[in-house]
Simulated assay, not measured.
Amino acid sequence: MSIQDRLAELGVTLPDAPAPAANYVPFVVTGHHVHVSGQISQGPEGLITGKLGADLDVEAGAGAARACAISLLAQLRRACDGDLDRLVRVVKLVGFVNSTPDFTDQPKVINGASDFLVAALGEAGRHARSAVSAASLPFGVAVEIEAIFEIR
């Protein structure tokens, strides 16, 4: 089954890849790797903002992380000229969680992205990962995630 078919089964339609918000490129392809710049939490209704431990709970944060993963796949699709089936595996995610100093559930928040990628990609979605706190993130978003993918 193609990745696009699996996404459809999950009820997910990838958006167009978001444009960069500053002076950087959205991804770099080097050899068999695609390095995708940090994707901020946004959905069809706009930016997903807030601070975990103050404005948002873990479930809302995980939803924001899932939205980041969807944007990561949109960027990957663009990097692969529309062919997501060139994906070999997700290599690594680095997740940043906009959170209060006493919030310690960053891994549970970033699970929203990790769980989605495994559901959408199967074993190819399993990856190494970091989940860290940030005092603030661009535009006040709840989560930002960057990724490295291996492609054919």
Results as ranks from 00 to 15, higher is better:
M1Q: 11
R6I: 02
R6W: 00
E9K: 10
G11T: 09
G11L: 04
G11P: 07
G11Q: 07
T13E: 14
D16G: 02
P18F: 07
P18K: 10
A19F: 01
A19M: 13
P20V: 13
P20S: 11
N23E: 15
N23A: 15
Y24D: 13
V25Y: 06
P26G: 11
F27A: 12
V28K: 13
T30F: 04
G31W: 03
H33I: 00
V34S: 05
V36E: 05
G38V: 10
G38M: 03
G38W: 08
Q39F: 01
Q39T: 11
I40S: 10
I40Q: 01
P44A: 15
P44L: 12
P44Q: 11
E45A: 14
G46D: 08
G46P: 04
L47C: 01
L47E: 08
I48A: 03
I48R: 03
G50N: 09
K51F: 03
K51Y: 09
A54E: 15
A54C: 06
D57Q: 08
D57Y: 11
V58S: 12
A60G: 05
A60W: 01
G61Q: 08
G61R: 06
A62F: 07
A65I: 09
A65Y: 05
A67R: 08
S71L: 15
L72D: 04
L73G: 13
L73W: 11
A74M: 09
Q75K: 13
L76R: 09
R77F: 00
A79Q: 11
C80A: 15
D81Y: 07
D81P: 05
D81K: 14
D81F: 10
G82R: 08
G82T: 07
G82V: 09
D85G: 01
L87T: 11
V88D: 12
V90E: 10
V94T: 14
G95A: 04
G95P: 03
G95K: 01
V97E: 03
V97W: 04
V97L: 07
S99N: 09
S99P: 01
P101C: 10
P101T: 08
F103K: 03
F103V: 02
T104A: 10
D105C: 02
Q106T: 13
P107A: 04
P107G: 03
P107F: 07
P107W: 04
P107V: 11
I110Y: 02
G112R: 05
A113C: 06
S114F: 00
D115C: 07
L117R: 09
L117T: 01
V118G: 02
V118M: 11
V118A: 13
A119M: 05
A119K: 15
A119C: 02
G122N: 06
A124S: 14
A124C: 08
A124G: 02
G125A: 06
R126A: 12
R126V: 12
R126C: 09
R129C: 01
A131G: 01
A134W: 00
S136W: 11
L137A: 03
F139E: 14
A142E: 07
A142S: 13
I145C: 06
I145D: 01
E146F: 00
E146Y: 00
I148T: 15
I148M: 08
F149M: 01
E150C: 12
I151E: 05
I151N: 08
R152G: 14
